[in-house]
Amino acid sequence: MEAQGVDVVVLCGENNVAYATGHAAPSQEPARAGATRTVAILTRTDVRLLTPPPLDFDDGVRELAAAIGDHAGTLAIDEYPSMLVHAALAPHAPVDARPLLTAAKFVKMPAELDAMRRAQRINEQAMDDVLPALRPGIRDTDLSALFFRRIFELGATGNTVDPIWNVLPTSLADGPFTFTGHLPFPLPAVGRVLEKGDVIFNDAGIDFNGWASDFGRTWYVGVDPDARQRSQFRRYLEIVEACRAIIKPGASAWDVAIAAREANGGQPPWFPHLYVAHGIGTDSAELPFCGTDLGAEIESQVIFEPGTVLVLEPVVWDDGHGGYRAEEVIVVTDGGCELLTDYPHAPYE
């Protein structure tokens, strides 16, 4: 706020409220989350939380406007939950709170990293407990059921993403339409019965006190990987190692995309509609993004600092023979980076 000359910040987004105040909303579908949201009003010396009636109606908007009152100076807001809020706050001529939020969130403090580690451990342990159930005949949603049971037994405060067990075609031509021509990952679980030989890209994320985890691995149903699949995994590791070698303070988001591409023989090893890496914090995906369609010019200006957290998620794809994908959560340290992910790549290691 000080650096950007902002005097009052109004936060309506739950992940922003969690970041700024520690108030974590329960995990719930988006409309309920919006209607029951807690709003944070920050000055440079004070934090106020309020939970007004739904901001789609006048009484809720009046309560919010009254709480903001006649604060002097520059007021920033992250989002307008409705056009009624937009109209009510127009006299304050709000500026965009996003620049100051992204600047603040870009570096995680030690206590924040501890919460993220805890989220990651719960996520990894739960997936480890799901893995023995992976066999021909089980449904994708049954794997979700086991995962849910374990995350709550292990202390998760919420699930954030409908768990993904994306069965892959071996060739892109056999998959659904996409604008990019690549796979439409991630697709939701639909009760599909898994068959022997299926290859799955999984992806799951949980919440621990407002902080997100991210887990991804490639699993094989009822078979051991063949020689081609083993080579895909080796290439995946090479790409991860190449990225880790350049991730350090001063490196840019685009540097990660370049390193990944070079380690993959010049071809980008990621889904073209996504990225090779993304940040994570109170949002399951936040800045920095590496390898998106934002492109070199923008991503080159995003420079890592100690405490920046990234999820590397390269995809190795041999069309006609499937591929390998996994995720590694990485934190930038003073001299380089270290893994927050602490989980093997079964069945390889």
Binding site: R32, D142, S144, A145, N159
Partner: peptide, 15 residues
């Protein structure tokens, strides 16, 4: 949550 997902519904309106 396990029981809900075992019936094929993997999304809670609220947990």
């Amino acid at each position: 949550m396990e029981a809900m997902a075992a019936e094929g519904t993997t999304t809670a309106a609220f947990e």
